[in-house]
C-alpha cells in the first residue's frame, strides 16, 4: 500500500503530503484527504496507467476510491482475475 500511496501523491501532485500522512482507512474524499472530482478522474487515469485496469462501471467509483485500502483491494482483485 506504500507504493500506491506514493503513486497517489505523484499523480495528484500532493506535494505537502507524505505517504505516512495517509491512513490506510482514511477517506480520500471530502472530510479525509479532501480530494475533489478532478482528483477522482486522475485516480481512474492512475489505475489505467499503472495497473492497466479500466473502471468498467462508473458507479463503482465511490466504493473503489473510498480509501487506499479499498483501492488496493480492487487492484489486487483485478490483477488476480487477469493472471
Amino acid at each position: 500500500m506504500l507504493d500506491l500511496k506514493e503513486q497517489i501523491i505523484a499523480q495528484l501532485n500532493l506535494q505537502d503530503i507524505k505517504p505516512e500522512d495517509i491512513g490506510d482507512d482514511q477517506p480520500l474524499f471530502v472530510e479525509g484527504l479532501g480530494l475533489d472530482s478532478i482528483d477522482a478522474l486522475e485516480l481512474i487515469v492512475l489505475l489505467q496507467q499503472q495497473y492497466k485496469i479500466k473502471l468498467s462501471n462508473a458507479e463503482d467509483g465511490p466504493k473503489v476510491f473510498k480509501t487506499v485500502r479499498t483501492m488496493a483491494e480492487y487492484i489486487t482483485a483485478h490483477q488476480a482475475q487477469n493472471v
Binding site: 495528484l12 478532478i38 478522474l41 487515469v45
Partner: peptide
C-alpha cells in the same frame, strides 16, 4: 497522445 490528464485539462 496516451491518456489525457483531467487535472491538466481544467
Amino acid at each position: 497522445k496516451t491518456i489525457a490528464s483531467p487535472a491538466q485539462f481544467v
